[in-house]
Design a protein around this nucleic acid. Structure first.
Lengths: 207, 207
DNA sequence: ACAAAATTGTTGCTTTTGCAACAATTATTA
DNA sequence: TAATAATTGTTGCAAAAGCAACAATTTTGT
């Protein structure tokens, strides 16, 4: 697994890494221009939120421990505004892209650890994004729910899964209409494919 | 921009990188188990294809120069089979994950270059995946087409854009029904938002 | 502990999308 | 270059999803 402490150790030697804490509700960063800023979530949770012209908010992504985010990974030329807002108290490490490759000091051996840690994080992140595409590219809400729950189940080695956020947010995450999703969740229950066993917790009946 | 030659130079010193050429139609790799194999596309084009139970094929992703792919980025536990198939003659570099971080030889200074090149590639790749999610998470086919064409337009600094693959493949890429997409493409023309100016080439009329 | 806010649950109606089938056009290759 | 395959274009109908509105329940903040 990823050892974020390596990066924190590096921080003691390099002044190029800035650790910052945020309270719930605070804006961590806004994607305004394609600067080369990278954030690594050390603890807590945040959401990437889009505000469109009419002021409607829409959740684009969720970040948690180990997530990598920032303008550096986004084509920010599209008109709507993207902001990362802490959904729980959280702490992030901010690094400028150029500081990753360029060594601060020939003696700084922590840069090496940083790069391998970062590669690990980027690998995990890529896998996560591929899974997400896998889910949202399904054609029907039923299939999206099904593969989403199945993935949760496999990851937790259990046929009992708890959706890690509200159903309202899940609808956003799957990019479907919430009430249509509720309807389909009900249909999956009626068809004995899943069984509700608690708030936002379901048992998959076919495995 | 990414300099893939750095990796090729490294190859002269490390025996851990394998360059391989593939003819059109050849299978480059199949995602069977989560081994830690990584591929970097040096030239040419390939597609990640899923074959479901019924033998239907479905294009999951497209790879081109600079694309990073492989089992290492996929949760391969889902039942359907994923294969990367060359859509044009192409050449790929294959690396095992463990060989990236672990140096082959203390004198091998190319490993350092490899890591920074790989970080660059992973950055570009992450941006690409985020853009893709941006597109397919739109609720309607019209919006998907719109943002997809707009992104192409911005990337090419032109309001005249050519879709880089067939419309059949585009429907797969946007994960929508092809005929529904054709209908919507027509509607965008009728509404004077786009104008067809050649095979798979459109002019965006609103910029 | 209570009021306010957020989330979950539900429904009827409308719009969009998928599906299937087929014709027309363009590419491929023997 | 002829025939074969692939892609593009089009349509009617069925299924799915979106939307809006509201009630019920749970959570949150003071």
């Amino acid at each position: 697994m990823i050892d974020i402490n390596e990066i924190l150790n590096a921080k003691d030697y390099c002044h190029q890494f800035v650790k910052k804490d945020f309270a719930k509700g605070e804006t961590i960063t806004s994607y305004i221009e394609k600067r080369k800023q990278i954030f690594i979530m050390l603890s807590g949770e945040a959401a990437l939120i889009r505000y469109d012209e009419k002021g409607n908010k829409d959740i684009v992504d969720f970040f948690r421990e180990g997530s990598v985010f920032g303008e550096a990974f986004y084509n920010v030329y599209l008109n709507s505004e993207l902001s990362v807002v802490a959904t729980k108290k959280c702490s992030c490490l901010s690094i400028m892209y150029d500081d990753i490759v360029r060594k601060c000091d020939p003696r700084c051996k922590y840069h090496e650890e940083l790069t391998s840690t970062l590669i690990n994080l980027l690998f995990e992140n890529t896998t996560h994004l591929n899974s997400r595409i896998e889910v949202i590219s399904k054609r029907t809400i039923r299939e999206k729910l099904h593969i989403y729950l199945e993935t949760l189940s496999i990851e937790s080695y259990s046929n009992k899964v708890t959706i890690p956020f509200s159903l309202t947010d899940l609808a956003d995450f799957l990019s479907v209409n919430r009430s249509a999703m509720m309807r389909e969740l009900k249909a999956l229950e009626d068809d004995r494919i899943i069984q509700k066993v608690g708030k936002n917790t379901y048992r998959l009946l076919y495995r």
